[in-house]
Nucleic acid binder design. Structure first.
Length: 764
RNA sequence: GCCCGAGUGGUGAAAUUGGUAUACACGUAUGCCUUAGGAGCAUAUGCCAUUUGGUGUGCAGGUUCAAGUCCUGUCUCGGGCACCA
């Protein structure tokens, strides 16, 4: 008995693919295309982990499946290299992030090649490559020119450990998504992208997407549209009025007091003198409280401002309070409290003994203007960190921002010695004195003449999510020196047909959609949704069911699995067989052995076959398998596709395999185990074109008729398939069965024949 | 608290959408073979009962000739949102 040696076979084929580059993709007008990608990885120092392998293998199965169907497939690869891990490593060891990143991407590339992926290596991108981030900066400038990149001073999430601000999407339960430390609020002037401009479209188009419902719901919740009205309340004895947002303007008659957030900007103007001290004290305390405390302690707190406003519906004088249960960032930062209808207002009213009156519903048109608000805030993109894409902006003496001219891009991230951030709220780039100075052409509004003005560069870098918001389009023309992406190439390849990942449900996947709509509006993209189909797969956990982590020592290294002698094919097939794509799964070393056994059986069937049979003997199972595997891959049921292949192989062991069976097997196996499949196809001199099934083989002469009595299985009768059209003949056949006759001798009440299910149920 | 999912053997899981429950694989048992290995092959394997049988998809009901699948209630687990007015 021969033994399958995957390491030898894989080496041979990987060398061939490296030399012959069969996975190069090019625009072929008129030929149907398929653009498939994974969410590109952050190349960590630890190399590929089994989760990457699941991700990349799903992409590879689909890539090869469509390639074998002779679609024009593009499957690129890239690295999301900016970010904190490389920088923190640099701070600890003094090694430049540029250097660390180079080593890590080299390692990732080598490992990805070891897995035999059908990647077009000519389309490899890296977000920290100046050739790439030049165009990230270009994208920023387009947003800046349209007013969608803007600066705003406000209270922001600040991570005291990473010494940087964070986007809302990067704060998880009041903690930093990177280091897990509790975040604080800090008042700072920061750059934002105006994603809210597209809130409605981002929300309205979710339903039409071929994405998992889970992700769609999360995005809907994140955007959180509320339709309501804004209503002005005049402050008594004061020129100011307070505008509130409410989704229930019809309850205005029940509004017995107003509440504003502690951060409410106009607060100082209407607080009465004798309340000033108390309000200031409350405000200071509220701001000091961490968001965690504010969230966990839902006990209502607040103070009276000493001021009153007029309810426009009742004309009554109602008190104005400050309380932190009103959020400054949502709506107008002020509410009308209707304790009769609203639980929170009721709780507050009860605690502070404020009036609660039964609400009489009214038509609100007279009092307010219709207004829609969103839970989603604008995307904060400044980071006070070194290892990121420099924001292409410089400031004049007055502090006004100016765009770095496009022909001067990229703004190169300078190499520095000290990467450490500090509390100054500026990145380590602030210490690169020479780099900071830049001359920017400025047009004099009076004379119309342009002169060079010395300015100071922006020292913040861009949120890494900005870099990954457009990379799917860079892939279509990755070496283009003149533009971010080529218009013809984008029209052919994009949008991405299938996108595979396991993370970034709201952040990245919302940002890409936002940029897509923006660049579509500018005419750079001929579509408004960047991703047609999204496959969101589960995680792979350690054998103990827990999350793999270095500290727990339960990490499975995929390269170890390969080098143990199982090979890349076994690893790939195992990860596809492990369970349904969308589910988390625990690593089971014993099942890996089972998959190896399966591939070994395939190998022996082809290379040590002693009982070849005639060609058409297995036509039924062969066609059945082709159909099952094809349909399963379309549905991303990779686990049952592999199971069908196993069944086929088991059958061939029993019945003997014809050459046609083995070639079919190899073709169907190739997306999962490309090395072994290529070896088999080579032996038989066959191409890898995806086989088609013939329905005529799926219809057999005789079928097994299931006979139930009172819904219980009592017999199986073999009948001629043509007889299924003749119900009375079938019933007679069933009645004449000895066993059934025994069960039905007391008389038959009713018979039911279901042709589709090939089933008869007799009620006695 | 609100909104979604999901509960099937010892284990990972199948089940053409109302029609033979447990495919495939792991594990276990028994046997065969062998230049004895990290082998390979064959058979069995939900539970109860000595066979024909009974019973069985978290639990309790219901609809139906027929329910893992549909309906009502309930429990458990997972996920999302959470003072968003």
């Amino acid at each position: 008995m021969k033994r399958f040696n995957p390491l030898e076979i894989e080496k041979k084929w990987q060398k061939k693919w490296e030399e012959e580059k069969p996975y190069r993709a090019e625009v072929k007008p008129g030929v149907p295309k398929m653009y498939i990608a994974e969410m590109f990885p952050y190349p960590s120092g630890a190399g590929l982990h089994v989760g990457h392998v699941r991700n990349f293998t799903i992409v590879d199965v689909l890539t090869r499946f469509y390639e074998q169907q002779r679609l024009n497939v593009m499957r690129p690869f890239g690295y999301d290299t900016f970010g904190l891990p490389a920088e923190n490593y640099a701070i600890k060891t003094g090694t430049a992030p540029q250097e660390v990143t180079k080593a890590n991407t080299d390692n990732f590339r080598k490992q990805a090649k070891r897995l035999g992926y059908a990647i077009d290596w000519n389309r490899e991108i890296n977000t920290s490559d100046p050739e790439y981030y030049k165009w990230t900066q270009w994208c920023f400038l387009q947003l800046f020119k349209k007013g969608l990149a803007y600066q705003k001073e406000s209270y922001q999430w600040w991570c005291p450990v990473d010494q940087t601000v964070l986007a809302n999407e990067q704060v998880e339960n009041g903690h930093c998504w990177r280091c897990g430390h509790e975040v604080e609020k800090k008042k700072m002037k920061q750059w934002f992208f105006k994603i809210t401009e597209y809130a409605d479209e981002l929300l309205d188009e979710i339903d039409a997407l071929d994405w998992p419902e889970k992700i769609k719901t999360m995005q809907k919740n994140w955007i959180g549209r509320s339709v309501g009205a804004e209503i002005d309340f005049k402050v008594v004895n004061d020129a100011h009025s307070i505008t509130v947002f409410t989704t229930r303007p019809d309850t205005i008659k029940g509004a017995t007091f107003l509440v504003v957030a502690p951060e409410y900007p106009d607060l100082q103007y209407f607080v009465s003198d004798d309340a000033k001290e108390a309000v200031e004290k409350y405000k200071a305390e509220a701001l000091k409280k961490s968001e965690i405390e504010r969230q966990e302690n839902k006990e209502k707190t607040g103070v009276f401002t000493g001021a009153y406003a007029i309810n426009p519906a009742t004309k009554e004088k109602i008190p104005i309070w400050v309380a932190d249960y009103v959020l400054s960032g949502y709506g107008t930062g002020a509410i009308m409290a209707v304790p009769y209808n609203d639980e929170r207002d009721k709780e507050f009213a009860e605690k502070f003994d404020l009036p609660i009156v039964e609400t009489e519903l009214v038509d609100f048109d007279a009092f307010g203007t219709p207004k829609t608000t969103y839970r989603m805030r604008d995307w904060l993109i400044s980071r006070q960190r070194y290892w990121g894409c420099p924001i292409p902006i410089a400031y004049d003496k007055e502090g006004n921002p100016h765009a770095i001219p496009e022909d001067e891009l990229p703004v190169i991230l300078p190499e520095i010695q000290d990467y450490k951030p500090d509390e100054s709220g500026r990145s380590a780039l602030a210490k690169a004195k020479d780099w900071l100075k830049v001359k920017i052409p400025v047009k004099d509004p009076k004379t119309g003449k342009t002169h060079l003005e010395e300015m100071t560069r922006e020292t913040d870098t861009l949120d890494g999510y900005a870099c990954s918001s457009w990379y799917l389009w860079r892939y279509v023309s990755p070496h283009d020196k003149k533009q971010a992406w080529d218009k013809e190439a984008i029209a052919y390849w994009a949008p991405t047909d299938i996108y595979v990942g396991a993370d970034h449900a709201v952040a990245h996947l919302l940002y890409v959609r936002f940029w897509c709509k923006f660049f579509a509006d500018l005419g750079y993209l001929p579509f408004r949704e960047p991703i047609k189909k999204l496959i969101y797969h589960g995680y792979i956990n350690a054998p103990d069911g827990k999350k793999m982590s270095k500290s727990k020592g339960n990490v499975i290294d995929p390269l170890d699995v390969i080098n143990d002698g199982y090979g890349a094919d076994t690893l790939r097939v195992y990860e596809m067989f492990i369970g349904p794509v969308e589910l988390d799964a625990a690593w089971d070393p014993r099942s890996v052995g089972g998959v190896y056994r399966f591939l070994n059986r395939c190998y022996n069937l082809c290379f040590d076959n002693k009982n070849e049979s005639s060609d058409n003997k297995n036509a039924v199972i062969r066609n059945k398998t082709i159909k099952k595997v094809t349909e399963d891959i379309y549905k991303c049921n990779f686990n049952t596709a592999v199971a069908a292949l196993m069944e086929y192989v088991n059958e061939l062991y029993k019945e003997g395999a014809a050459t046609g069976d083995l070639v079919t097997l190899a073709k169907l196996l190739k997306p999962f185990a490309p090395h072994l499949a290529s070896e088999i196809l080579e032996k038989y001199g066959a191409d890898d074109e995806w086989p088609k099934w013939d329905e005529k083989y799926l219809v057999t002469d005789t079928v097994e008729l299931v006979v139930q009595v009172n819904g219980k299985l009592r017999a199986k009768i073999s009948v001629d398939v043509n007889d299924l059209d003749d119900e009375s003949k079938i019933i007679d056949l069933v009645k004449s069965n000895e066993k059934i006759a025994e069960y039905t001798k007391g008389g038959i009440k009713k018979t039911i024949f279901v042709k589709k299910a090939k089933l008869v149920n007799i009620v006695v």
